[in-house]
């Protein structure tokens, strides 16, 4: 009898390893923002249709994560943070990751079309294509603006959620897209300043490496300045209201203050306090997005009782 237990040494994949291919953490953000897009839309959706749609959007997001892990296994192997992912650690083969990614991509798009409409399914298909082909395969290893481009893929879910309910794209959903799109660069570059991952060894052009940390600090400030009017502007549309607009203004001022503090500092000061300001701004940026989308959902909930809105 062949002793199959020897394969345990190479780490035979368990169910959790296949699940890890779908990047569950990213998926939770996709679920949250897609749900926000769905709930703030002026058209109500049957709870079962809404649940199924969010599920298929999450699976589509997970599928693009699996394809990203298949393509980027060489980079992931080099960097400490990603070396334990299922493909570089040898638990799941690259071919398996690709097969799972492709199958789930097609399945999620077809199922979303059946559950909701072709506009939402088309947007999901484009998001997967954009993240896998445009970002992962093409621009990630080519330009230090890769974070900005990758951020666009992460910004689509609320737009898809909105399309599930309304079947269309509108100024509100475009502004929700822009909110995440503008938020991603300062959020990620704040992290890049204190998490000195070995992107250069992996051959990924990170702004901190290609243009230096001073340029990264400048970029954080510029993107945060661009983010504020988008966040506040969203409050003036049909899905905004006094609660959201007040919160967006206060939080944007807080984010701007943090970005300004990062911009003011040099490396010496930052190293002296172990990147305290950068860490604080990174945490604040997470709270920023969570509270703003939370406030949009609150406005929608209040509107159904005749309150909220303008």
């Amino acid at each position: 009898m062949v002793d199959t237990s020897a394969y345990n040494e190479t780490g035979e994949a368990q169910f959790g390893d296949y699940f890890a291919l779908l990047k569950p953490r990213v998926m939770s953000l996709v679920v949250f923002t897609a749900l926000a897009g769905l709930l703030v839309a002026p058209v109500s959706v049957h709870p079962m249709v809404g649940f199924a749609s969010i599920l298929f959007i999450a699976i589509g997001g997970g599928a693009s994560g699996a394809l990203n892990m298949w393509w980027d296994a060489d980079i992931d192997r080099v960097m400490r943070r990603t070396a334990n992912r299922p493909v570089p650690s040898g638990k799941v083969t690259g071919d398996e990751a690709m097969a799972i990614g492709l199958t789930l991509s097609v399945m999620s798009v077809v199922m979303l079309a059946l559950a909701s409409n072709f506009m939402a399914a088309g947007l999901l298909a484009f998001t997967i294509f954009f993240y896998v082909v445009i970002y992962t395969m093409w621009l990630k290893r080519w330009t230090p603006q890769n974070i900005v481009i990758g951020g666009a893929a992460g910004a689509f879910p609320p737009m898809i959620g909105w399309a599930v309910a309304t079947g269309s794209v509108s100024i509100e959903s475009v502004l929700m897209f822009l909110l995440i799109f503008m938020w991603t660069p300062p959020h990620f570059w704040a992290l890049a300043l204190f998490m000195k991952d070995d992107y250069s060894k992996a051959g990924v052009p990170m702004l901190t490496v290609t243009h230096g940390r001073r340029a990264t600090r400048n970029h954080i400030l510029v993107y945060t300045i661009l983010l504020a009017p988008v966040a506040i502007g969203l409050g003036l549309t049909s899905i905004g209201g006094i609660i959201y607009t007040t919160l967006a203004t206060v939080m944007s001022l807080g984010f701007l203050k943090g970005a300004f503090d990062i911009w003011k500092r040099d490396e010496k000061t930052a190293e002296a306090d172990a990147y305290l300001t950068e860490r604080k701004v990174f945490k604040f940026s997470l709270l920023y997005l969570f509270l703003l989308f939370g406030a949009l959902m609150l406005e929608a909930a209040l509107r159904s009782y005749g309150w909220g809105g303008w």
Binding site: T4, S5, A13, H46, M48, V49, A52
Partner: peptide
């Protein structure tokens, strides 16, 4: 024994998928 987690996982996923399709059909 070694593949129990994979088999159980697949069972739950497939059963869940059937339940979602059923629920969706009823709702529609």
């Amino acid at each position: 024994t070694r593949r129990r987690s994979r088999n159980m996982g697949m069972f739950i996923v497939l059963f869940g998928f059937v339940a979602v399709i059923f629920g969706l059909t009823m709702a529609k």
